[in-house]
Amino acid sequence: MIATPSILNDVTKCIGCEECVAACKKINDLPEEDAPPRVGRSKDGLTADRWTSVVRLPEGASVRVQCRHCLEPACVSVCPVGALQKTSDGPVVYDKSLCMGCRYCMMACPFGIPRYEWSSVNPSVRKCILCFEQLASGKIDKPACVKACPKEATSFGSRDAMLAEARRRIDGEPDKYIGHVWGEHEVGGTSVLYVSGLDLSFLAWQEPTELGESPLPDLTWAALRKVPFEFVGMGVLMTGVWWVIDRRMRLQPKSSDEPGSNDE
């Protein structure tokens, strides 16, 4: 498998034919018809049985959405049992045998991608896995969605190659494209990149400026890093306070009505 496999989606080229959706459903053995939508489903059309979908913008453009396979994925960092893993090759994959169904990954994803099988009694988290198994075993040379695209609106290659291609397209037709590669820097970079003639900031929960360019796992790690010190510190503090107060109480004559004060 190539290094950091990436997908470049070119919104200007997408005709919205949904070939990618059909191909994705086929290779991942998903039912052709989605389950009935739940109240409060997201507007991007992704469901537990539809791992990529085409969002149609009022401007007439079509934008394909799927898991971004972040370079430093929030979902992987928050999973308490490591059911979501970023493989050494790059795709973010899911191991149901570890999952306990806490759905923290769904909360932590800045793009709101993971979906849940709400009507199942044995539910899984479902999302694009970048055709990981078939790619790794060499059965296919590019993900099914990329292969199915009739317009080369979505292409596949190493991340460096895709970034170079994105830059080449933007520089080649600066009138057609906005000079920004979505996914190059957002939340530390993603493996699914977008070039477009329209603003794509709606693809995340928040404006990219607010999402920031630093990886999200750093935010929790900043707090978690302190945990061992807090743990030991609190233990030492409590033992110390007890020792001081206990000693003071033992030395005090018994007639006192108010035991030692709580200053340390």
Partner: peptide, 13 residues
């Protein structure tokens, strides 16, 4: 599962 499958980077863990 958190008892044997560890991910110390997760606050939930």
């Amino acid at each position: 599962h958190p008892t044997i499958y560890w991910n110390p980077r997760s606050p939930l863990f």
